[in-house]
Computed example of a mutant assay.
Amino acid sequence: MTTSPTVDHYQQILGLCRPLPPVHTAVVHPVKVNVLTAIADAVAAKLITPTLVGPRERIVAAAAECGTDISGFELIDTEHSHAAAATAAELAAAGKVQAIMKGSLHTDELLGAIVAAASGLRTERRISHAFLMSIPTYPKPFIITDAAVNIVPDLPVKADITQNAVDLWRVVFGSDRKPKAGVLAAVETVNAKMQATLDAAALCKMADRGQIANAIVDGPLAFDNAISAAAALEKGIVSPVAGDVDILVVPDIESGNMLAKQLIFLGGADAAGIVLGARVPVILTSRADGLRARLLSCALATLMAEARRTGQLK
Results as ranks from 00 to 15, higher is better:
36 L>R: 00
230 A>P: 02
108 D>F: 12
126 R>V: 08
154 D>P: 12
103 G>Q: 02
102 K>E: 01
214 N>C: 08
50 P>I: 02
85 A>K: 08
214 N>M: 08
87 T>Y: 10
168 L>M: 14
245 V>R: 04
41 D>E: 14
7 V>W: 08
134 S>T: 10
291 L>W: 00
129 H>T: 07
276 L>C: 03
195 Q>C: 03
245 V>C: 09
134 S>P: 00
97 V>K: 10
304 M>Y: 09
247 I>A: 10
271 A>D: 08
125 R>N: 13
7 V>K: 13
235 K>I: 03
84 A>E: 07
216 I>W: 04
128 S>V: 09
267 G>R: 04
78 T>W: 09
229 A>H: 08
158 K>F: 11
184 L>G: 00
303 L>P: 14
127 I>A: 06
137 T>E: 07
155 L>E: 10
210 G>D: 05
38 A>F: 11
14 L>R: 11
240 P>E: 11
256 G>C: 14
178 K>P: 05
252 D>N: 15
282 V>K: 04
250 V>W: 12
273 G>W: 11
246 D>R: 09
220 P>T: 13
61 A>T: 12
145 T>D: 05
111 L>I: 14
197 T>H: 08
270 D>Y: 12
108 D>S: 15
198 L>T: 14
63 A>K: 02
22 P>C: 04
177 R>N: 09
159 A>I: 11
31 V>W: 01
58 R>H: 08
24 H>M: 05
7 V>G: 07
166 V>H: 05
227 I>E: 02
28 V>G: 06
16 L>A: 13
187 V>W: 01
313 L>E: 01
119 S>A: 05
6 T>M: 07
146 D>I: 03
25 T>M: 04
33 V>E: 13
10 Y>G: 07
231 A>C: 13
